[in-house]
Design a protein around this nucleic acid. Structure first.
Length: 420
DNA sequence: TCTCCGATTAGAC
DNA sequence: CTAACGGTCTAATCGGAGA
């Protein structure tokens, strides 16, 4: 029996989240910007139609935006994460075998579901009715083909938001694949599609039919898997339990350039607090910490300095205060006067479960003060992030990101609940 | 020549 | 008024160092 694997993908997700609480924006061209109000990361259909490009720096779109009355919003991740959880909860009910693939996508294995068509439409209907978020459903025998089917469902209004690749005849499949540029295939990005074009591979069909050994030799194992997936041989399994992070990064571009060391240290203490909270949330500790600084790479008129320094820790830790001291030390060592710093961050790596650690033959065992961190996490969970701070954490405002048009946290802050 | 490891590349979203 | 270009994560591959 062929597998009926559905990929459910939310339409213009961030914009859709904003519109749930702003029905007046339903027909308005809207975009959502990345952190620091930098680039366009989500567009309504109206904004797409006006030619606003995904990933474009917002200042480059401003003229067009003013001309057409396009509304730009800062991103509100608390809202998007909460709305995502609601949608995922609904989808999970349709199959015990599902994978939350990203904030707005979920694979749902519907193999063996009677009346697949009706169920798919019902799933769509329920998502939009219960959360206000419209979704599309693509079904195929492999993840790659389910993705492709979803692309078709989104693009062709006739599909009514559901498209099943498995229901096609061989001829129809060939026709369909031949009309899809190879760039649209999951796993084929800008660079690969350019190189593939040199070999005459332009469409999904070309990739499916390409000579496998040559493909493997020239482009590697990743694309061979993609080819086999297009040939309906599953190579990418459903990953139902999400595994622990192997690396945790927290970094930000600053709202304006920073020149003073104490301001950098303040930013880094904030990043450490976030990264370590994440680390503890997954029950891990890290044995390596790295700090990096960046001047503004787009300002070629300014002196550039991009230092980065890492230390292996004597023993793994998830203690914010301990990590903070290391971050401070590394930053202080790298800091040089006279540069305009635009970004900084920390990387925690060599991550392992807290239950598992290598003792030191020559040092006595040390028990870290985990009760303090447990208390800190509980207080921040209950009373909000940053209730208990690490070091100066956020005392300086110079570095904090621009967020000129952020919507309220409608679903995650009592004070932000709209009064009707 | 083989193995290991850090750095780089490419991709997703 | 002006300047303004995101953040996290993974897997594969490359290339140098050392055994």
């Amino acid at each position: 029996m062929t597998r009926q694997l559905a990929l459910v993908d939310c339409n213009n997700f961030y914009v859709s989240c904003e519109r749930v609480f702003r029905p007046d924006l339903a027909q308005v061209p809207v975009v959502v910007l990345s952190n620091n109000d930098g680039c366009v990361v989500s567009r309504s259909n109206e904004a797409k139609a006006l030619g606003i490009q995904m990933g474009r720096p917002w200042f480059e779109c401003k003229a067009l935006a003013e001309q057409h009355g396009i509304l730009a919003l800062s991103s509100n991740y608390a809202l998007y994460a909460d709305m995502s959880n609601r949608v995922m909860g609904i989808l999970a009910a349709y199959s015990p075998n599902h994978e939350v693939y990203s904030i707005d996508e979920c694979f749902v294995d519907l193999t063996g579901t009677p009346q697949l068509r009706e169920v798919s439409y019902a799933m769509r209907q329920r998502a939009v009715q219960w959360t206000g978020i419209p979704v599309c459903v693509g079904i195929g025998p492999t993840k790659t083909l389910a993705k492709l089917a979803n692309h078709v469902a989104k693009k062709h209004p006739r599909s009514q938001g559901v498209f099943n690749y498995n229901a096609l005849t061989l001829d129809q499949k060939a026709q369909l694949l031949a009309h899809i540029p190879v760039q649209e295939v999951w796993g084929v990005g800008r660079k690969l599609s350019k190189r593939l074009a040199c070999y005459g591979v332009h469409t999904a069909w070309d990739l499916r039919q390409a000579h496998t050994a040559t493909l493997r030799a020239q482009f590697g194992v990743v694309i061979e898997k993609t080819q086999r997936e297009l040939q309906e041989l599953a190579c990418i399994e459903l990953q139902e339990v999400s595994s622990d992070r192997q690396q945790i990064i927290c970094s930000r571009s600053f709202g304006s350039a920073v020149t003073q060391l104490p301001v950098l240290l303040d930013a880094l203490s904030t990043f450490v607090a976030n990264a370590c909270a994440k680390l503890r949330a997954q029950g891990s500790h890290a044995a390596m910490i790295q700090v990096f600084l960046h001047t503004n790479r787009f300002r070629q008129d300014q002196a550039q300095y991009t230092p980065s320094l890492a230390v292996p820790l004597p023993r793994p830790t998830c203690d914010s205060l301990e990590v903070s001291r290391w971050a401070e030390y590394l930053c202080t060592r790298m800091f040089k006067d006279g540069y305009q710093y635009k970004k900084a961050g920390i990387v925690l790596s060599e991550i392992s479960p807290q239950t598992h650690w290598q003792g030191d033959l020559l040092e006595p065992a040390v028990t870290s003060n985990s009760r303090l961190m447990v208390a800190l996490d509980q207080l921040n969970l209950r009373y909000g992030r940053g209730t208990v701070k690490v070091s100066t954490q956020g005392a300086y405002t110079d570095w904090q990101m621009r967020q000129e048009r952020k919507s309220p946290d409608y679903t995650t802050r009592w004070a932000d609940i709209p009064v009707v």
